[in-house]
Each structure stands twice: as structure tokens, then as C-alpha cells.
Write a protein that binds this DNA or RNA. Sequence first.
DNA 1: AGAAAAAGTTTGTTGGAGCAACAATTGGAA
DNA 2: TTCCAATTGTTGCTCCAACAAACTTTTTCT
Lengths: 169, 169
Amino acid sequence: MPPDDPNPGKPAVVSHGPMADELGFHLRCAQLAAFKHFAHAVGAVEGITPGLYGMLQAIDNNPGLSQSALAVAMDVDRSSIVKVVDRLEGKGLIVRDASPTDRRRYRLHMTATGARALRRIQDAVIRQDRVFSARLDDTERATLIALLTRLYRPDSETPTARAGIGAES
Amino acid sequence: MPPDDPNPGKPAVVSHGPMADELGFHLRCAQLAAFKHFAHAVGAVEGITPGLYGMLQAIDNNPGLSQSALAVAMDVDRSSIVKVVDRLEGKGLIVRDASPTDRRRYRLHMTATGARALRRIQDAVIRQDRVFSARLDDTERATLIALLTRLYRPDSETPTARAGIGAES
DNA sequence: AGAAAAAGTTTGTTGGAGCAACAATTGGAA
DNA sequence: TTCCAATTGTTGCTCCAACAAACTTTTTCT
């Protein structure tokens, strides 16, 4: 116990003051908790991160995607994609398929084992997601998703479809 | 335009498939957007990150905090705190005050300029936070904060007070 | 044909976050 | 008291993610 603690009975913990009214603060805390939960429940088993999982989903739902398009979709630099694709390809989850019409381009595809792994991981993620949000009933959960979506997606056309990255190319 | 694109008219963008129903995904997207918004609106001006801002608030709201307590509160390693405190002290925002009763410990305090800077930054953050959540009315905003809070804080005693880090020391 | 742009890659840098080890100091147990 | 364990701050190291710049090859535009 700290000798300088003026109130030994109180929690002696950081009060976050005016940040309690800032949405960004709670967003940060919740996302941090979600990340930890993910890492513990899925990452420890499958050796994957939310980012990698998102990339796998992007490739699976958009076969033949180019690395640049994936970079735009994931909102990271092209050069950052290389290592990721290397890793996923090294694990045998995806393949770099040479485009027959554009010899610069690779078409990213899932392998059979990759598709199987993704299905397995996805089940784990969905299960983990439900555990993480267990304190919310279905209505609250849907409300939360809707509100979050309106935060980061200016146009809320289809509630459950594409995301807010435009790579019409 | 990619020669392999089967539908040149459509957005040709990543559909995120089943992730649309995962709360963690939307949490991640929203937090990423909030971080970027923060960096653009506040970080570019004050040269600060949400994490640094949180530390400043923690020190300001808990004067005399030790570095270890700050580390626990911020949920990072003690060694990571050193560089941060170095930076904040180098900027003249805080000071390492030697504890008179425990010669190992430093008591972190805001300087006058630090307190002034924090007030200025806080105003910018609050303004930025309102802009970021402009698509939500007050009720929706409060609902969102309440739902987020229940995600990462198991015990929801006071709705607007301390946060979920326990450092009873 | 020649310039401009795009796709993928390499290299280097930055920054954050963690772990292990350390000196100084404090607290408790024998 | 003496000695051992725990705590505090610190340094050094590693790892990893992300960006920027430069470069090669290829395609597209003029």
C-alpha cells in the first residue's frame, strides 16, 4: 500500500474524469477488451488476429482479389500486405494465382484447407463474439451494431453487406 | 480497371460476409475510425494520441500517482510507462516528484503548463468527439456509451465515474 | 513510341508493447 | 537484528505492425 495514499479505504484507482463522457474513450476500452477476448479465445488456439481473420474473410468472400484491392479494403499499405499474404500462403491457407490477363497481378484464392480452416475459425469467432457480448440481449446487441455502423459508415444503405471501402478501380 | 473483374459496374469491393453479424468487427471498424478522426483533429495539432491523452487524464485526476499504478491503470507494462513519462516530462507537462516516504517511488504531477495544455487538449478532444458522433443524437449517443460500458465493465455501478481497472494497491 | 500509372516487392525507419534482468529500496520473517 | 522476498523504476532486448521511398515489371494512355 502506497504511503502517499490519502484514502486507504477507497479503491485508490484512477478515476478517468471527463473521459467518461467521451464516446471515443469507451470505444477504445471496449475494443481493447474485445481484442483481448479474441486473442484469448481464438488467437491462442488458431494463432490468428482479428486483422488476419478479416483478411481471410475478404479473400474468401471476394475470390480473385488482388493484393492492392485487399490493401485498400483493409486500409493498410500495399507493402504491408506482402508479409501477410506470405504468412497466409506459407500456412497453406491461400494461394497467389497469377492473373492470365495481367501479368503484374496476383489473384488471391483460398485453398481447400484454407476454406476449411476459415470455417473452423469463423465458428470459433462467432462463439467468442457471443460470449463477449453475453451481457447484452439480442435487441441490445443489434442496437449496438447499428449505432456503431452509423459511426464509421456514412452511408448506411444495406445494413448487412459491404463495408465502407471503395475500390472500384 | 482490372481485366479479371467480372462486374465492371458493381463496386468490386470487398464484401465482409458473415462478419457483418459480429460485434467485434464493427467495434474494430468504429474504433479505427475514431482513432483516425482523433489523429486528424487532435493528434495533428497537439501531437498526442488517445493513449497519451488517457495518461494525462489519469495523472491529472489522480495527483501523486506512481508509475506502477499508472501502468496498472493503463494496462501496460511498467517498462512501457518509462518512455511515456519521459516524453511527457520532456514536454514539460508533468513532473516526477520524489516521494518523501518511499525513495523508490515517484509521484507524478501535472505542471502548470501541463494542466493548461490538458485543458486545451481536452476541449479539442470533446469537440472532436462530438463531431465524430454527429450522426447520433444525444439519446443514441448515451445508449451507445451505456452499451459499450456494459461490454468491458462487468460491474456497472456508477454509470459515469471510474473505469474498469482495478489497482487497489 | 514514349510517358504515366499500377502491381508487387524490397529496404529502412519508426513506434509500440512485451520480457528479462538489474540496482535501489522497502517490508516481513526467522 | 539479519536475511530473504517483494516492490519501484530503469535499461536492454526482441518482436511485430505499419508506413514511406525506391525499384522492377507490366499495362495503359496520349
